[in-house]
Design a protein around this nucleic acid. Structure first.
Length: 659
DNA sequence: CTTGGAGTTATTTTT
DNA sequence: TAACTCCAAG
């Protein structure tokens, strides 16, 4: 497009949102109202008009996918050179945080090559620490500890601030506060930060060195925040401090707030006008995505939420087809139904125009199986991610340890993988020898003092030598070579031979190798490995094959498809049992928003379904239909009769009546 | 001491 | 179903 026509094909409020750059701006953008278009045009215009240089704009998103998307669209819109586009600060909150903190790590007493812990690392550390400290409490499982600490960080609470939380007793308050503080000490000792630290340490950094903040405020002439409704306390503070009044634009939709479990607050939308008194608010309510029926159905559903700002989407488009509801016998039948419909639609639609949206990642398996059986190409997004696979984490841990010897979590993960007969007792000895230093140093000391049996010492020596050699090799060789040597000489590849899933694992490691070969700096690689669950070339798999997308509802936000299957509309799943049991009314409203997000992904056809019985763990449980289904206006849905399969009574067990 | 097997149990969503 | 704990063999 000619940059001069940046207002083409925009409606009145959209144009205003592109042009209003004199005061802070909040755009309340309903689903499908052209938000991304407005956002990219606004940025493109700022650059094109010379109101801000390419490097003076910051755009923050919540997911790497969204960041990449925005970057690509602006680059194309302005026909930017790759080298120029690179200078735009477009990324996730966490990515930006890491970037600031790497640059100024020493201000906070960290080494610039600090390690970023993912949630798995965090959990393992908390587990180890709670065992060490004798923190035993049936309620405070290490998982609960981990998620609570994460949540406190999201809420901007340090160990000293827990008094404001709802805890059972002052004794508990003290214990948790002590534990939280010990956890933070441990992170510091390891030169590590978890996800929450990437944000809260930025605030600390700016407190300690205000001139840095001033510098960045001057630098970033415009700050743009996407999916603003999902910002938590720390992200809000982060954003508010970085943006000078008038240089800020946030875009969000209270009906699509689906991350309150991570600290997102509706409050942010309400507070915006208080914190930026001159702020303008623009509402985008014309929907360009979905048919009238889909809009009416989803609008009827979301109307049942009490806590919302309220807005009414409208379209000038067609009513379109009615939604279809299918009641399946069980989960397998539901998957077969979706398969049949896809086959039926496929002459007119490409596979990649269709998506199956699920509440939990465990639901994906049924669809993968059915699609596999019927030869339907598919791609799973959300759910178990590339970087979470055991073999990938192992390989990355080897690299991490070679990169930073202080990375105790990496050490801990791989010291006995493959088995070196160095079990818990050996590790305990190493830990003792470390005496507060790193495990790597502890290992060296154990070797000096011969603090283990001869066989174990031999193995330990080999391990330490391997890491030392890899560390030295990093100076002169490409990381890929280092990885190859690590996996080969550690015996990891050999041990893989004994694994049952070795073909998969090998393939995954090969993909990791490809990804690694594309970077020239191990630090940059590890950064992305920590922050991006699915690095490019792994998740995207751009092989040109058109594939049906299977996605969790969370991962589907921001996407759209001509055909959407929203499955598992059952109590316990949607709304999820956890939300109903633990979160009460507010949590159910969030589940409703999640359903709303799913429905509004659809452009032309929306298929809903649920089963009559569902296999929960071992057991087939009778299903109660989702309350949300009843909240959808009846005139918008057509109910399809269950197709009675011939195998009924043979292959499909009937729900057993319980007494 | 380590390891593998048996038995048990608990299952959301993601940076 | 996978992830964890517990226990006995080597």
């Amino acid at each position: 497009m000619n940059p001069l026509n940046l207002l083409d094909n925009l409606n009145e409020p959209q144009q205003q949102a592109v042009l209003a750059t004199d005061t802070a701006l909040m755009v309340l953008a309903g689903a499908g109202s052209g938000k991304t278009r407005v956002l990219t045009r606004r940025l493109a215009r700022l650059i094109h008009q010379g109101e801000a240089g390419v490097g003076e704009i910051m755009a923050v998103t919540f997911t790497n996918k969204a960041a990449l998307e925005m970057r690509t669209r602006i680059t194309e819109l302005l026909r930017m050179d790759e080298s120029v586009a690179r200078r735009m600060w477009i990324g996730t909150f966490h990515g930006m945080g890491a970037r600031f903190l790497r640059t100024h790590a020493e201000v906070l007493g960290f080494d610039p090559n600090f390690v970023i812990l993912d949630s798995g690392d965090q959990q393992r550390l908390i587990k180890r620490l709670s065992e060490q400290m004798g923190f035993v409490d049936p309620y405070w499982t290490y998982k609960r500890l981990a998620s609570s600490i994460g949540r406190w960080k999201d809420d901007g609470l340090g160990p000293e601030d827990l008094a404001t939380t709802r805890l059972r007793s002052s004794r508990e308050l003290q214990r948790l506060s002590d534990f939280y503080a010990a956890y933070q000490d441990e992170l510091r000792r390891m030169n590590a930060m978890d996800f929450g630290d990437l944000l809260s340490n930025c605030l600390k950094l700016w407190d300690r060195a205000p001139e840095l903040l001033t510098g960045y405020q001057r630098r970033f002439r415009h700050l743009l925040v996407d999916e603003y409704q999902d910002a938590n306390k720390v992200q809000y503070d982060w954003m508010r401090r970085l943006a000078v009044d008038g240089a800020l634009c946030v875009v969000g939709d209270d009906d699509q707030l689906i991350y309150s479990w991570r600290g997102a607050r509706l409050d942010n939308i309400l507070k915006f006008e208080e914190d930026f008194p001159n702020a303008r608010v623009i509402r985008l309510e014309q929907n360009y995505r979905s048919s009238g029926n889909i809009l009416r159905a989803s609008g009827g559903l979301i109307d049942h939420n009490i806590g919302r700002k309220g807005k009414t989407l409208w379209t000038s488009g067609q009513e379109g087809a009615l939604l279809e509801l299918y009641v399946a016998e069980d989960g397998e039948d539901e998957a077969r139904y979706v398969t049949r419909e896809i086959m039926r639609l496929v002459p007119g639609q490409s596979f990649h125009d269709m998506a199956v949206l699920v509440r939990t990642s465990s639901q994906t398996r049924l669809f993968e199986q059915a699609f596999h059986e019927f030869g339907i190409p598919y791609r799973v997004s959300g759910g178990l991610r590339f970087m979470d696979r055991a073999e990938i984490k192992d390989a990355v841990s080897y690299l991490r340890l070679a990169h930073s010897m202080r990375d105790d979590l990496a050490f801990d993960r791989i010291i006995n993988v493959p088995s070196r007969k160095l079990g818990p007792k050996a590790l305990e000895e190493i830990q003792r020898a470390a005496a507060g230093g790193s495990l790597m140093d502890g290992a060296r000391r154990v070797l000096e003092t011969r603090g283990l049996g001869p066989a174990a010492l031999g193995q330990l020596q080999k391990f330490v030598d391997l890491v030392d050699r890899a560390h030295a090799l990093l100076e002169v060789a490409h990381p890929v070579e280092v990885l190859d040597r690590l996996l080969e000489e550690s015996g990891y590849m050999e041990a893989l031979e004994l694994e049952e899933r070795r073909a998969d694992m090998r393939e995954n490691l090969r993909e990791l190798r490809v990804f690694l070969s594309q970077v020239d700096d191990l630090g940059a690689f590890l950064e992305r490995a920590a922050l991006e669950a699915d690095p490019p070339g792994t998740e995207q798999r751009e092989d040109g094959v058109s594939r049906v997308v299977i996605s969790t509802l969370h991962a589907a936000k921001g996407l759209e498809f001509p055909v959407v299957f929203l499955v598992g509309l059952e109590e316990g799943l949607l709304p999820h049992k956890m939300a109903v049991d633990e979160g009460g009314q507010a949590a159910v409203e969030e589940e409703r928003r999640l359903t709303y997000v799913g429905m509004t992904r659809a452009r032309e056809r929306l298929f809903l379904s649920h089963a009559r019985v569902r296999r929960m763990f071992q057991r087939l449980e009778p299903v109660i239909v989702s309350r949300f289904l009843k909240e959808i206006p009846t005139g918008t849905i057509r109910k399809r009769e269950t197709v009675i399969t011939a195998r009924r009574g043979v292959g499909i067990p009937r729900p057993r009546r319980r007494f």
